[in-house]
């Protein structure tokens, strides 16, 4: 496996798929949103607890491919304690830096789905 897909399924990505971080439901969420990827049937629900403009806690629930699930783990780890306003400015580069894998156009939607869900929850 030499080309793109071989590279993207790295050990830590598969680990995060099997043992996701921040997976579950936040009962006391102040913001939540469910986002779908129509193409592949990925589904992600995010729950945020925003206190004094900052992310006090965040969790996600849903099902999807290894790329979207790993991305959700990495993003939810990173945005904890981040000001909500700052999250609104995050873009694809933020996700790519976290993922550290070469993501082609066909899988970009999968990787960006969790960030999209978080941003919509905050809107």
């Amino acid at each position: 496996m030499t080309s793109e897909a071989g590279d993207i399924y790295r050990e830590y990505i598969l680990d995060l798929y099997k043992n996701p971080h921040n997976f579950g439901i936040l009962e006391n969420a102040t913001h939540k949103h469910e986002e779908f990827n129509q193409m592949c049937g990925d589904k992600i629900k995010v729950f945020l607890d925003i206190k004094e403009g900052k992310v006090k806690d965040i969790k996600f629930d849903g099902e999807g491919c290894a790329i979207s699930m790993a991305s959700a783990s990495l993003i939810t780890d990173k945005v904890k304690n981040m000001p909500a306003e700052q999250i609104k400015d995050l873009g694809s580069q933020f996700v790519l830096d976290l993922m550290r894998i070469p993501i082609g156009t066909s899988r970009m939607k999968c990787a960006l789905l969790p960030l999209e869900a978080i941003k919509r929850a905050l809107n």
Binding site: A5, Y9, C40, G41, I67, C110
Partner: peptide, 30 residues
């Protein structure tokens, strides 16, 4: 079991195998 269709299709493609994965234009059925 435990592997999403998109991952299956991406990895099969590594071995030059073309299959479809996703909802296959039948969302209510899935």
């Amino acid at each position: 079991k435990g592997i999403h269709g998109h991952d299956v299709a991406s990895l099969l493609n590594e071995d030059n195998i073309a299959i479809r994965a996703g909802h296959n234009c039948a969302m209510p059925l899935l």
